[in-house]
Design a binder for these strands. Sequence first.
DNA 1: CAAACTCCTGAACATGCGTTCAACCCCCGC
DNA 2: GCGGGGGTTGAACGCATGTTCAGGAGTTTG
Lengths: 240, 240
Amino acid sequence: MRSTPAPGSADLPAGSTEPPGVAAASTARSDRTARARIRDAAITRFAADGVAATSIRAIAAEADVSPGLVIHHFGSKDGLRAACDAHVAARIRQAKQQAVAAGAALDPIGALRAASQGPPVLRYLARTLAEASPQVAALVDELVDDAVAYQADGVRTGMLTESDDPRGRAVVLTMWSLGALVLHEHVARLTGVDLTEDPATSGAWVVPATEALARGVLAEEIYDRVRDGFAAEEDGHDGR
Amino acid sequence: MRSTPAPGSADLPAGSTEPPGVAAASTARSDRTARARIRDAAITRFAADGVAATSIRAIAAEADVSPGLVIHHFGSKDGLRAACDAHVAARIRQAKQQAVAAGAALDPIGALRAASQGPPVLRYLARTLAEASPQVAALVDELVDDAVAYQADGVRTGMLTESDDPRGRAVVLTMWSLGALVLHEHVARLTGVDLTEDPATSGAWVVPATEALARGVLAEEIYDRVRDGFAAEEDGHDGR
DNA sequence: CAAACTCCTGAACATGCGTTCAACCCCCGC
DNA sequence: GCGGGGGTTGAACGCATGTTCAGGAGTTTG
């Protein structure tokens, strides 16, 4: 449309997430590139107030730059949002792989909490899980796929029971985990546990959740009835 | 502040949710009061796009009134939002009581789906569960309290197993249910089941969820370990 | 018929928004 | 020293927003 060279067209500048020499000790606030600072500020504000309710000016103020620079780097607010989605997804994938490498692949999101250095990645995820985004949707699909694999491992080692529908169960467990994350404010109010931080500080959430998943909640016969009911419907194609 | 009489100051005009003679048969679209039409339009738009991303003009257009009338009736956009919260909470409480009276008190939210006549109450809930609102928070607290009572009944009739922490388990199950509702778009993409409609049209969600809740997922010993671990931490006050 | 009342509209207001653009600073190669 | 280019600013633009307000139907009451 325009003759301007469209500066922010490249979404990810070739893995430049961190220029090498960043020491963890100093609390330096301007040694990162402005682009990274803006992105992190956007993640913080989006996580706190939601995307629609956050203005570019608020993000610029948090990053200590001018509104114009935000647009210069990301093209538009939508571009910024996409870049945040991509960055958060990348951070979470990376944390996931680290957790797998470390051996603790039990709870998909439990592992992600380790990623809580820097911008509030998990709170951002909690927000955007409810606001349709293709990047987040792809991430969720991956989490489900991974959960299927983890489950297979868990069944082999005897930590998990077998399932009639491994993928269905993976979907259910992933949705329960992520759903609780989205509702972290309600969980915090009801139990005092902040799921976006390390939930092991109190057992008020983890213990009952583990109990439900280990001992079960429903009488086993109920499952047989529900399953057979739907199986009959499938056969008859319309259970009426 | 102003000398204006502030027309919309009364939040709920003395239980006028439905003037008596509304027949369910006719699809009449303008026999309801404009106030009710605006409120339902707002619920629809808020449910579809989120509160922040919905303009008063869009609501006015959907309700076929002028933007001014929206303000006249509800005072402000925040007032409208509060009225929607209150109305949806009332609708859900009512549906819940009906479901209890009808005997099917098993799944707190499953019962709520029956309320899906009129504006998309459940989708509105799914949206606002993630956007802090005191009215919705109070509703969630009620759902948990009710779940505690339902669980006690269920244990008595043998449909549910006993729990070491009934309230904790009620919180967990309620959060899982509501969380899955919030993520209904992801659930629909992954399983084809729309949790905001009647989920019994397919077992792809209900069957694995029932399996997980009935048979359990984790090896039982894991619960003992987790519980004892936290119990030890409680005793020592700091498990280091 | 007119006055009064309720419901409602349409234009207008101020504000804040996302975005644009010309100019500026500062560092780097020459 | 000097030109040039990327990073950055600040003012401005057009627009959509939430809200205000004077008054226009339409019906009821005197």
